[in-house]
Design a protein around this nucleic acid. Structure first.
Lengths: 164, 164
DNA sequence: TGCAATTTCTTTATACTTCAAGCAATTGGC
DNA sequence: GCCAATTGCTTGAAGTATAAAGAAATTGCA
């Protein structure tokens, strides 16, 4: 701790300790919840988190999505999605058909089975999440939403600047 | 939207949409930052995030840590740590020796090389994080810290209840 | 039209990750 | 002192993840 001439605590010019601690806390918090959700999904439905996430993306649309869309929305690599989709088609949860106007493109959809199973899981999942955040007041939630939005914007600005 | 008899908006008894949206935002935010940090580590130092994280744990102590300690602190499985440590010993960053009082236990330490390289990376890393959160005011950071601590506590309570 | 750039997706190599099973060492009753 | 339970770690199988290279199709523009 550094004290100035009037014995008040001051920061070193580039002490970025608070940001680092914030990042570690954010990461811990997310990892903790993610692990919990992963366990419950495996335990109750014998499904992995990546598969659940992929199905969640597809459940939001009725007419299917391309692999590229999926990888963008899930923020994972293209090749990763290829493999996930492959296994979910194999298990009968997804359905793929090639675009008629652009033969590079594959539209991926949930099958009836896939959608039915997903809906069942999603209903439980939503309750788990509500319980996991159960100690937070509506005001806490609003504040967190606001601050995380700000953090996201800041991170995007930083990432963009690096790639410019 | 549901309206009651006096035409005021009311919630369905178990609509947990806000918690779910909070979780998705938290996850997005973390994934975004994690991806950014991962890219930069690879680009500047040709190191993976898990290796960096493991070295960060070891840098906090002078006399080494056991594999179990590492896996608890990193919140990953035991087998995962075994592999990570193996590769880092191989590359000369870590050092392992068996406990003399309990031959099951292995103490893992950073080598001189490992510590030197880590310190260099950590200094850069701290600046990246500061930049990534650069749009947040000190007050924003304090608030986020507080709310994330509360969220973490809530998640732990929920996880504990499930395993009871 | 021609053809270079781009886009979409797959493949490959390598690494990370979990879970579950298993081995060896230690501990805690009795 | 014995032995069942526990602890620390490793292994193996399956799955998830990235980056990089490549194949196929489309687009854009001279």
């Amino acid at each position: 701790m550094i004290l100035d001439s009037e014995t008040k605590a001051v920061e070193l010019p580039d002490d970025h300790g608070t940001e680092l601690r914030l990042w570690l806390r954010l990461l811990t918090c997310t990892t903790l919840i993610e692990g919990e959700v992963r366990s419950r999904l495996r335990e109750k439905f014998d499904v992995t988190l990546p598969r659940f996430d992929l199905m969640a993306q597809l459940d939001k649309v009725s007419d299917g999505m391309t692999l590229s869309d999926l990888s963008k929305r899930m923020m994972v690599s293209n090749g990763n999605v290829t493999g996930l989709v492959e296994r979910l088609v194999e298990s009968g949860h997804l359905d793929r058909r090639t675009s008629e106007t652009d033969r590079r493109v594959q539209f991926i959809r949930l099958t009836k089975l896939g959608r039915a199973e997903f809906r069942k899981m999603a209903a439980e999942h939503e309750k788990w999440i509500a319980d996991i955040f159960g100690d937070l007041s509506p005001k806490d939630i609003r504040e967190l939403m606001r601050l995380l939005a700000k953090a996201k914007g800041s991170a995007q600005r930083s990432a963009k600047a690096r790639n410019a």
